[in-house]
Nucleic acid binder design. Structure first.
Lengths: 205, 205
DNA sequence: CCTGATCCTGACTCTTTGGTCAATAATTGG
DNA sequence: CCAATTATTGACCAAAGAGTCAGGATCAGG
């Protein structure tokens, strides 16, 4: 994940930085940036507060490091869309991959959700830069498929937004989803079925 | 909106409470609960901090009042689904209404998004109570339509989730949407077209 | 097993911020 | 126009939390 610069790091540095980022992910994704405290992060990581600040200059730096480190992993599935693949199946695979990530990495999903909600102070350049580029690549592929009639014609940007919205909803708003569904439901596997049907219907030529 | 108890309130009280809630909505929806300060709220409302605390006992009470006051308005469209109406059109109208609310009341959308993200400490009873009830009513109507073959059969809870996710996405993640689309787009009217097509496809029997 | 570099922490500072309060100003009803 | 009630605020307090630092512990390489 991300541009690791583990080169000049000792074993202890590597381990402790990892512990801190892991703890920070839990804390930031639960409480947001402003709601998180270095003490909580330290507690989660099993280190003292000054020790955390020995490895990262500030709370802000921890946060920024987390975001940039996780962004690649978060966007990867979009780049995995194969222009040579079967169009509908490629999209359905992307949806499934994103939904799986919401289930498996809800903390990451919430971390980004908080950041975008805030207006993305740390991500502004990235949003208009790398993210936009990645999306445009995918859009180009989709448009090609649509023009050749192998996929039904819809606005590709909004198609991608819809996939993001629907899949991340199950991570970001999980308490609401569970409260509304009540006991005895597996939101994610139900969602998988629902979304598979939805995008099949929407995109079958 | 909500159960107003304006009975024993003077003119000044009504006006200032309104100013405070209005300012608080702006501040909370931008920064979240922990990120907001009473000073900011006071500034937004054009009052002094002690004066704000003269009308509300605490920051928490302002927040709770806002949430409960706005919840009714936020859920209203769901209760407006007419069992006697034309099924597909009723759903499309609901989608359009929700999207219109995202455009017109993005602050409310973000306020709730922040709260759910946090785990909804203030809303837990409501989520499993009133919200769940409202959803179940709508689900019953949808199920009826589906059983009588006037609407295609999909899981109604997840249909509702999908509508929430897609429409609120444009308010909650607006900076991302705009960054990805670039200049010269009207996200909301494009979304309206996209969603109309999507749900038409999904639900036409 | 010694030494320099790395690692760790208790105790501290400084700022922010939620909230209080006594004193003052408006307002209102008689 | 005069109490009595309501509204407003400057000055303050206490707690929380980000970040510092001097000194002690640990470790790695020779």
């Amino acid at each position: 994940m991300g541009e690791q610069d583990d080169s000049g790091l000792t074993r202890i540095q590597r381990r402790n930085r990892e512990l801190i980022l892991e703890g920070a992910l839990t804390v930031f994704s639960n409480s947001g940036f402003r709601g998180a405290t270095i003490d909580q992060i330290a507690g989660e990581a099993g280190l003292s507060k000054p020790n955390v600040l020995y490895y990262f200059a500030s709370k802000d730096e921890i946060h920024k490091t987390l975001l940039t480190t996780l962004l690649d992993m978060w966007l990867a599935p979009l780049s995995n869309i194969d222009p040579e693949g079967e169009p509908l199946q490629e999209v359905l695979d992307y949806v499934a991959a994103k939904l799986r990530m919401s289930r498996q990495y809800p903390r990451e999903s919430r971390l980004f959700a908080y950041e975008i909600l805030r207006g993305a102070p740390h991500l502004t350049e990235i949003l208009g830069g790398r993210l936009r580029g990645t999306v445009e690549d995918a859009v180009a592929i989709l448009q090609d498929w649509m023009q050749s009639g192998r996929l039904r014609n819809v606005e590709p940007h909004h198609l991608i937004f819809s996939i993001w919205a629907m899949t991340q909803h199950y991570a970001d708003f999980e308490v609401q989803v569970r409260a509304v569904l009540g006991k005895g439901h597996d939101p994610f596997s139900e969602a998988q079925e629902f979304l598979d049907d939805l995008y099949r219907r929407l995109l079958s030529p």
